[in-house]
Each structure stands twice: as structure tokens, then as C-alpha cells.
Amino acid sequence: MVDIEDLKERFLNLEFDTQELRIDPEKSVTVARVTGEVLPEFTDPGHEDFQTPPAMLASLAAGRHLPIDFPRLGGIPMDGGKAVTIVRPVKPGTHLTGRTHLHDIYAKQGRSGRMVFIVSRMEIFDADGDQVAINDSRMVVRERPDA
């Protein structure tokens, strides 16, 4: 089995990916509309406080989740969940930068073996370098006994 403490020591808090991002206003509205959103701040690009819904922000975390030299854990990775912290409203169409690091690695014992949870965190900054949001993606890997 993989040594979780060793993984944490080697990989936590080291930035491994940077992306230049721009949220398409029309797509942001689509995400709001198909999830039933009614507030014009999310559905009307002409609104003075037009902003990105949390689910659209969460989708930005779908890039590379692991450092290139992260070891294979043997099982099939699954999307265990997502969290979004909105520091300030994000206006679609503006320039953003997403910087990603591994925020946490932990294991839980399940009925069918050990599950390893890897939390990849993207911190999102605006063009002025101010932080606007934090995305956490939880990847779950059910370890194979021989891994």
C-alpha cells in the first residue's frame, strides 16, 4: 500500500499547474439557466452585478488534478466531490489565473479496502492578482490490494 505520509511530504502544497482562464459569459448563463437559477445577477449579462455561478467556477477545476510525477495508486480514480469558496464575485469574460496544488491526501478504510482521497486545490486570481475563488476537487481512488 502507498505510504500516505510519504505522499504528503513529497507533494502537498507544491504548485504544479497554472492556467490562464476566461469564463465565457454565454456559457455561464447557460449553466445558471439549466440549473434553474432565477437571479438576474447570474442570468443577465447586462446586469450591473453579473457574475459566475458557483457550479461554473467548480468546472474550472477540471484540468490536471495531479503532479506529473505523482505515483499511480492502482485503482480507478473517481470524482468524490467539489467545493467552491467565493472570495468575491467573478465577472464572466474577465481574465483569471488558476494556480493548482495538492491541498490534502488522506485515507479511509472501507468495507472493500482502503480508499485514498486526494484534494486538489485551484486558487483563482483576477487580473490584478487578487484572489477571487478557491476550488477544491476531491479525487477518490479505491486501492487495489496489490498496489
Binding site: T35, F42, I86, D136
Partner: peptide, 24 residues
Amino acid sequence: MGFLTTMIHRWAPAARVEHVDTVF
């Protein structure tokens, strides 16, 4: 996650979601 935050906005239009965490 989108359905859940929409439910919050419909209930309280003045509310701002600062943090949402969903487990799949």
C-alpha cells in the same frame, strides 16, 4: 451543486453563497 445553490437563491435572493461543498 448548481441545483442546490439555485435553491438557496430562490429561498433568499439577498443571500450570497460564500462556500459550497458537495460530496458525490
